[in-house]
Design a protein around this nucleic acid. Sequence first.
DNA 1: AATGTTAATGACAACCATTATCATTAAATA
DNA 2: TATTTAATGATAATGGTTGTCATTAACATT
Lengths: 156, 156
Amino acid sequence: MPNKDGAGPRWMHGKFKCCGYRMTKPREAILDVLGNTQEHLSAEDIYLAVHKFYPNIGLTTVYRNLEMLVNMGMVVKFDFGEGRSKYELSDNYSGKGHHHHLVCKKCYKVIDYSDFMKDEVKFLKNTEDGLSKKYEFNITDHLIQFFGICKKCSTK
Amino acid sequence: MPNKDGAGPRWMHGKFKCCGYRMTKPREAILDVLGNTQEHLSAEDIYLAVHKFYPNIGLTTVYRNLEMLVNMGMVVKFDFGEGRSKYELSDNYSGKGHHHHLVCKKCYKVIDYSDFMKDEVKFLKNTEDGLSKKYEFNITDHLIQFFGICKKCSTK
DNA sequence: AATGTTAATGACAACCATTATCATTAAATA
DNA sequence: TATTTAATGATAATGGTTGTCATTAACATT
């Protein structure tokens, strides 16, 4: 799963360099893991995946890098109510494209959906504009999640 | 702030009784606190407020009751990214009415807004219907939050 | 009002995701 | 290759939340 050539995409290196950061093996491995899954991974999930190839990379490092990547906007952190955060590459860096989440409250399975975005975009634009003006808030983000019970969980 | 008569609204007692639950002093005090604030309180906030009048009510009891009230649908639990959950009475039991949240990412101030709900309701209905059908999910809830920087935080 | 049943409590320990500390290592640059 | 300092890894600490268990008190029944 990780890039065995040890280089990683060129643009990535640039991205880090120009911020005064370095491209390190753990950082690259973490991005690799995030880039090669459709799942929503916890810090520990990522740690375990990375650990297979680089057994000396520690959990602390994973947390540190995730925090940094979130701050850089390359990774997004989600809370699905499971007691631990989940991470995924942000829209610009993942193949998934813009999507939102549908979360099962029982098994915490998460479905990405990107249908129904037309209404949503309109609604979001309106609301963000209105709220920004009225409450003098500089809105940078939104979180839209639907919760429910998935098919599997509803039949047991 | 708590009802000194020690009775509380009648309908509440009924609500609990018919589920096999009991109306206890801690439970009542917690509901009282939640019913008499416009703030979004953490478990500890509630504990401290309750503690003033009933110093022997413990934090564990607060957590236990909150969990139970959330399961009953009387209280809603929110995560604003602060590292601890916040609680408020659900729409049906609070004077606030249906609203959503605008959260400052720096100071975690939360603004309730109920403007712009017209678009939202339409959008939500559409999306929920579509998602339910397509993904065979029984949708029960949604979470809509806007994040940004409040005026105060942006000028310092 | 007294009693019995059992939901609920309170004190404390345990849990577990996340963060802080700090000596050591290794990217990037010259 | 040497220098600088960002980044690492091991470990301890933090802090919100949950589990345990003996005790208490709501409520229905008598």
